[in-house]
Amino acid sequence: MTLPSVSPVRSARIGNVAVIYASDYLNRFNGERLERECRLRLGEGCRALVVDFRHTDLVNSIGVSMLRGVIDVAEKAGARLIFADVNGQAAQLFELLGLMRDVALAPNEQAALTLLAESETTTTADTTPHSD
């Protein structure tokens, strides 16, 4: 019998934003890999994370608990975090398990990046010193 294959965690860096692609089944192991990748990217200096769930078909509760770890890591590093392309099943789980309170959702990766860029502009504008 061949067990279902589990695709690896891929990621990309776009400026100060890291895009991490969750695998097809978000369980404990893949959740740990995701968390590791996030830590790694934040360690490299990324200021925002986009977790892209486009390949994720199934999520289990342990995988969700690992996402809680990702949220904590991002929070501690002061980084923005957006979950992109979350399917209905995963979204329902995130909702049921209270993740939605702590993370922003975007319909896809591009939308997430746009959201982050807009937010960055706003923040920069807000923090630009006014000259009298």
Partner: peptide
């Protein structure tokens, strides 16, 4: 139980009940 370590004790059963 949702505030226990990593906050997932009992999550599975909660989900089953909801689904």
């Amino acid at each position: 139980g949702s505030e226990s370590a990593k906050g997932r004790r009992g999550w599975g059963l909660k989900l089953i009940r909801a689904l």
